[in-house]
Design a protein around this nucleic acid. Structure first.
Lengths: 143, 143
DNA sequence: CTCATAGTTTAGAATTATTCTAAGCTAGTT
DNA sequence: AACTAGCTTAGAATAATTCTAAACTATGAG
């Protein structure tokens, strides 16, 4: 079941607006990538997975552009980079306060809502330093 | 002020025992690396920093061996790998329960003792999964 | 003590994720 | 319509890490 032409027009218009508000030119590539990324909430992608996905969808975007775009979106606050794996970088469409389960073997990230976990007792950082953010990663394995 | 020959002998003997107990042959390279790593507590190294350090000390060990050794020590439970940076892997000589401050710009890790931080409300993992461990990274910046 | 061998080390090649370069496109303005 | 700053891209470059396969060594057996 495809999405209707009208839906696509609406989605595109919304996406273009979103990009403009972030100070990013709504190029074909950025609009296509953003449409994919923000169609559903709470997505976790790597540069490669996103590149594969958009290529599958029949849209031609270079891998370099996917990397550029992921970083630009991250800078613009549309994405958040999640560091859980030494081997690759994940990007999360949920930029709000929340944490993650991480299944290393499968390379799978699962959101934990922000209010769920409480971190108490974070010490005052050494002089001259300020807390930027507190990341919690719950590493899980097949039982 | 150098350490005496007797101290070195003692340190070496201890290190050899430690390696044997972990099922690792006490080769020259492993003994030298372990001696450096475990001389002081709470060290954070990367493969390159450790390779530089041991090279400075006049000991010849290949970078490949440093990588191998770090992984073997990690498997043996003598080290713990800390994932905080997409660019490089850190290894921590403190394998006990504790967390970290991370200064991204400087690539600096600082321990937070285990009892300091309390994480409450970690949800039950999805079916078939079990919590392996909970990592907390307090990302800090120059104020 | 000497040997045999399983385990180790190593140089250098290979791999992988990511970034860079610089040449060609394009959105937005004039 | 034309200009231009910004964007995209192929392909080269980089950097961390792993692999390969040949040379070495710890160690247990004889």
């Amino acid at each position: 079941m495809g999405r209707s032409a009208r839906d696509d027009k609406t989605l595109t218009a919304l996406t273009v607006g979103r990009l403009r508000q972030s100070g990013l030119r709504p190029t074909r590539q950025r609009v296509e990538l953003a449409s994919l990324l923000f169609k559903d909430d709470d997505r976790h992608v790597t540069a490669e997975s996103l590149h594969d996905e958009i290529t599958e969808a029949g849209v031609k975007v270079s891998l370099a552009t996917v990397y550029n775009t992921l970083h630009q979106f991250t800078q613009a606050g549309l994405l958040r980079q999640v560091i859980v794996d030494a081997a690759r970088s994940y990007f999360d469409t949920n930029t709000g306060d929340h944490q993650h389960f991480f299944l290393e073997k499968e390379g799978l990230l699962i959101d934990i809502p922000g209010e769920t976990i409480a971190v108490a007792g974070v010490p005052t950082p050494p002089p001259g330093l300020a807390v930027d953010r507190v990341d919690v990663v719950v590493r899980v394995k097949r039982a």
